[in-house]
Design a protein around this nucleic acid. Sequence first.
DNA 1: CCGAAACCTGAATCGGGTCTCAGGTTCCCC
DNA 2: GGGGAACCTGAGACCCGATTCAGGTTTCGG
Lengths: 205, 205
Amino acid sequence: MSDTVLTNVDGKPLSQRGIDTRRRVLDASERVFAELGYHEASIVKVTEAAGVAQGTFYLYFDSKKAVFDELVRDLNRRVRHAMKEGSSQGKTRLEAELLGFDAYFRFTAEHPALYRIIRQAEFVSPEMLEYHYERLSAGYVEALQAAVETGEVGAIDPEVTAWALMGLGEMIGMRWILWGKGKALPDDVWQELGRIIRGVLEADT
Amino acid sequence: MSDTVLTNVDGKPLSQRGIDTRRRVLDASERVFAELGYHEASIVKVTEAAGVAQGTFYLYFDSKKAVFDELVRDLNRRVRHAMKEGSSQGKTRLEAELLGFDAYFRFTAEHPALYRIIRQAEFVSPEMLEYHYERLSAGYVEALQAAVETGEVGAIDPEVTAWALMGLGEMIGMRWILWGKGKALPDDVWQELGRIIRGVLEADT
DNA sequence: CCGAAACCTGAATCGGGTCTCAGGTTCCCC
DNA sequence: GGGGAACCTGAGACCCGATTCAGGTTTCGG
């Protein structure tokens, strides 16, 4: 994790003013891409939302796709951070897993852009789609692997289990957070999700 | 399920020749949309792939979005049919579930268009995205509900469980079928998936 | 074999998108 | 308070796409 210096398209480092403008454009991109989707989100709309001229966009990003890729990286970093933060409070693997899910759902509620942008990546930037899921699953795998090694959970396959948990969380999040009214998981759904995750972490006896 | 008569855009029934041409355009759409994505898939490319002129497209479909919607309905009908077919051979709920997954993975291997088109629906046609998942989950719910009622599985919530299974299947399918080389689930992954599904169907003791 | 219905054609219309660039403006150090 | 570096502007060059439509071709019952 090296801190990379922000640069303009020519590779020159930015002044504080440049850094701020770049951030404004990136944030505006998140909003506009999330609301309209990649293709409907024109550079005109993004720059309007950011309050800058069209040309300014190209001072900081090579292309429309480049800002999309960066958005994926940015959101990915942020969810993983939120999830790690949440799960770190857990005393057992199961508790940690549930807290991680909770953090994930909260993040989803606050940043629907995550879903909406990832969905588009399939065609806009397939490599970023893989990047996102690979990194997300890596976090799970690591934690599950550790839990297997300490004997806290039985003989499960961390890789397959990680992807299963990820898929299950994504779908539940879509159904109850994204499509739901309250922007939070209803209690009974949360209960049931607990049961399911418990089942998933249970090795054959 | 009423058989609907195929018509041109004015609502007139088609002759056999018309039916064939319409089908050619729809099939070409599936191929082109799956390969290039909705936005890159121009009507020019679709009609070229179908071997007809651009105008012909509009004899059978109102718009580019209309053919997309129909594609979703078509693929949805076909996966559900394949899954029902597969799971109906199962003697127990678990066995049926596994056979359903197997059918789903086979379908995915043969029709990657399913994933690729559904992903796009988020922005192209949100109502079709919901349509797809709602109908898919409905199949699960019905079967799970029945199994709960006969006491074959314990006190699980069919709705939440259905969406969890769906999400898990989708993610595993993406990772090992769509991204994988062999277009089939490796044995060890399949084993592990069995364990996971078993866990998901297990009510609290 | 004729006439109308059904089908097919593809150039043209119209709208809109990304990215460039020549010309300002602001900042900041000396 | 002057000057160069960094930053910003927005009109327009250039490209591409969905949809239409006036005119041709095929089919088929009688």
